[in-house]
Simulated assay, not measured.
Amino acid sequence: MPMHPDEIHDMIKEAFPDADIEIIDLAGDGDHFKAIVATSAFVGKSRVAQHQMVYAALKGNMGGALHALALETKVK
């Protein structure tokens, strides 16, 4: 069963309480999303490290309940 966009938002928000988060359903199928995440936790981190931090916040759901997630990360 695919993840609801609110679940994705809430998991990221739990990991990064100060984050500004936008979740976009890319294909309208509830299975392919884009997350735009801006948080101060990304200060000094490479883009790869930022993405790894977001994937970690999703607690193993990538590749399972969450099939595809494009990420755009920004320092807040």
Score class of each variant (00 low, 15 high):
P2F: 14
P2E: 07
M3S: 06
M3D: 04
M3Y: 06
H4I: 09
P5N: 03
P5F: 05
P5R: 04
D6S: 14
D6G: 11
D6M: 14
E7T: 09
E7L: 09
I8F: 00
I8E: 01
I8D: 03
H9I: 06
H9M: 08
H9G: 07
M11A: 14
I12T: 00
I12L: 01
K13H: 09
K13D: 01
K13I: 02
K13Y: 07
K13C: 08
E14R: 14
E14T: 15
F16Q: 00
P17M: 00
D18Q: 01
D18G: 02
D18S: 01
A19P: 03
D20K: 15
I21Q: 13
I23C: 05
I24D: 07
I24E: 07
I24H: 05
L26Y: 04
L26E: 12
A27N: 12
A27F: 11
G28R: 05
G28Q: 02
D29V: 14
G30C: 09
G30K: 08
D31Q: 13
H32F: 06
H32T: 15
F33L: 05
K34D: 12
K34V: 10
A35S: 04
V37D: 08
V37H: 01
V37E: 02
V37N: 04
V37S: 02
A38D: 05
A38H: 11
T39W: 03
S40P: 14
S40H: 13
S40I: 12
A41K: 14
F42L: 03
V43L: 11
G44R: 03
G44H: 00
K45G: 06
K45M: 15
S46Q: 05
S46N: 02
S46I: 05
R47D: 11
R47A: 12
V48S: 10
V48Q: 10
A49E: 14
A49M: 11
A49Y: 00
Q50E: 05
H51R: 15
Q52M: 12
M53N: 13
M53P: 15
V54D: 04
V54T: 00
Y55T: 14
A56S: 13
A57I: 00
L58M: 09
L58C: 08
K59N: 11
K59L: 06
G60V: 02
G60C: 06
N61T: 13
N61K: 13
M62Y: 04
M62G: 01
G63S: 03
G64L: 11
A65H: 10
A65L: 15
A65Y: 11
L66A: 10
A68L: 07
A68H: 07
L69Y: 00
L69Q: 01
A70P: 09
L71W: 00
L71N: 07
E72H: 08
K74F: 11
V75H: 13
K76S: 10
K76L: 13
